[in-house]
């Protein structure tokens, strides 16, 4: 008889109470997956969509520290949607840092499905039918990441984002130094709180990885500029 880790079992039951067609599967040692047709109704700007799509939600072994991943199961209704990753067909629900911050508030499968997955599927089906996104998305790759950090740090200058990411990669806050944002205030009196808050959601190496991704993007852009000149 297969036994389910109680945390996942309870969360799966909570999810199935609302979406009964989703079922939990897994080997005793994990990993666990939720599989089934997700039937949802969602409204944005007075426009309501009701759709059904078979999905497979993979639950990582260190859930809820790490978020589940989702893809279509045995069908390809939304494969051509630009926010489906080309390689493994997984849904790109948002930038990792944004999802982690949101998920930390209510780390449950039901929240994941209702707050991340359903809005994503809504936008995918809306895009398929109308050719436009119902609500704003992020650009692909490092550019989208840069936009995300601009919004999180509440700044506009990519160079400032890089400086902040550098601080987060080292997790060393020199509070007495001037804040890189150019406010002429000390870090302590300026962005320190925002940085401290964000630093809790990723490891320093994850921030470093993001720094490198955005840095590569900057190199490409400056290369293109030099070619155009």
């Amino acid at each position: 008889m297969i036994t389910i880790p109680s945390q996942i079992g309870i969360q799966a039951n909570e999810l199935r109470a609302v979406y009964p067609a989703l079922e939990l599967f897994g080997k005793p040692s994990g990993p666990w997956k939720i599989i089934g047709p997700l039937r949802f109704t969602a409204t944005y700007n007075n426009e309501t969509l009701t759709k059904t799509i078979p999905v497979i939600i993979s639950i990582p072994s260190d859930f809820p520290k790490k978020l589940p991943t989702v893809k279509e199961h045995l069908s390809s209704l939304i494969t051509c949607f630009p926010h489906v990753n080309a390689d493994d067909k997984s849904f790109c629900l948002g930038t990792p840092i944004d999802l982690k911050i949101r998920f930390s508030k209510v780390p449950t499968l039901l929240f994941f499905v209702e707050e991340f997955l359903i809005p994503f599927l809504y936008s995918a089906f809306y895009w398929l039918e109308n050719g436009v996104m119902p609500f704003p998305d992020r650009d692909h790759g490092p550019l989208g990441l840069l936009q995300e950090y601009c919004s999180l740090f509440q700044v506009h200058d990519p160079k400032v984002v890089m400086s902040f990411l550098h601080i987060l990669s080292n997790k060393q806050f020199v509070y007495e130094k001037l804040c890189p944002c150019g406010s002429a205030k000390k870090l302590n009196e300026c962005h320190a709180t925002i940085l401290k808050n964000i630093s809790a959601y990723q490891t320093s190496s994850e921030f470093e990885y993001d720094w490198h991704s955005i840095n590569d993007l900057r190199k490409i852009i400056s290369f293109q500029h030099s070619q155009n000149r």
Partner: peptide, 22 residues
């Protein structure tokens, strides 16, 4: 076809994450 599929609750979308891609 599937008796277990009942009417799902209507979700109002607000403050959703912005879709992205690696």
């Amino acid at each position: 076809e599937n008796s277990k599929i009942t009417c799902p609750p209507n979700r109002t979308i607000q403050n959703q994450p912005r879709a992205w891609r690696r």
